Amino acid sequence: MFNLIKKDFVIQKSQIILFIPFIIFFAIFGDHMSPAFIFLLAGAYIPLNGYIYDEQVESNILLNSLPYTRKEIVSAKYIGGIAYMTLSIGVASIILYIFNYGFMIKDITIAMGLFFVFSAFAFPMFYILKPGYIGVAVLVGMIISAVVLPPLIRFLAKHLTTITDFLTSLSTTALYLSGAALSIILYLTSWMVSQFIYQRKVF
């Protein structure tokens, strides 16, 4: 399974070279952006590119001819997603620190939680949608999320006072632990859903 995880890194050598300039761009020109969103983009960079590459070259046909079970193929994507997300956020934090872009540990934890939530919905789509539509759907989804979520959260905070009063009554630690638990549960559920879909997929 380690070779399956390493595959995403090896096949993206040219794209990974662009990763550092990509983060440097945000470090210089993205001072109006939330650090958590920059960390989210960094964390999703390699996992999403890996899925998009597999879609373009139809590598699933090759993978299913190798001595790997379909369970291992899907598991490698989800475990690799965690590994590459952690590595990418670590590199991004070093770059932002070098460029004096202010961020806190909570920005990293929020980004990791958002990665789990976003991936929980995005990863199964790569096994459901037809090739050629997946990359576009994910990119459009990220853009829409970036535009729609902030005003939606402000709207809900303003009008759903019962929920907001309950959330504000919780301690910061309780909020972070609840968010972490929810995001991890969603990710694990997504993992099982992807396993179910991929086991029945015909190539």
Rank of each mutant, 00 (worst) to 15 (best):
T162F: 15
T162K: 15
F2A: 09
V117K: 04
M142I: 11
Y84P: 01
S88I: 03
A27G: 15
L156W: 08
S75N: 10
V136M: 14
N60R: 11
G179A: 05
F37V: 09
M112G: 09
S178H: 02
I89D: 00
M85R: 03
S171D: 12
Q12G: 11
P21Q: 08
G141T: 02
Q12I: 02
I89C: 03
F121V: 13
M112A: 12
S178V: 06
I110G: 00
S14D: 13
L160R: 08
I23M: 01
W191E: 01
R70S: 03
Y187V: 02
K106S: 14
G179S: 03
A27S: 15
L175I: 10
A120H: 02
T168H: 14
S34W: 09
A42H: 00
Y45C: 01
Y176M: 15
I94Y: 11
G43P: 00
K7C: 05
E72N: 11
K13L: 15
L170D: 09
V138H: 00
G50N: 05
S88L: 07
I23D: 01
A44E: 02
A76W: 00
A76L: 04
K7M: 10
Q195Y: 03
F123W: 04
I73E: 01
Y176G: 10
Y187D: 00
Q195A: 07
T173V: 13
S194F: 01
G30D: 04
A42Y: 06
Y51D: 03
F9V: 05
G135L: 05
Q12L: 12
L156H: 07
D31K: 15
I153T: 13
S75I: 07
I153L: 15
E55I: 02
I98P: 09
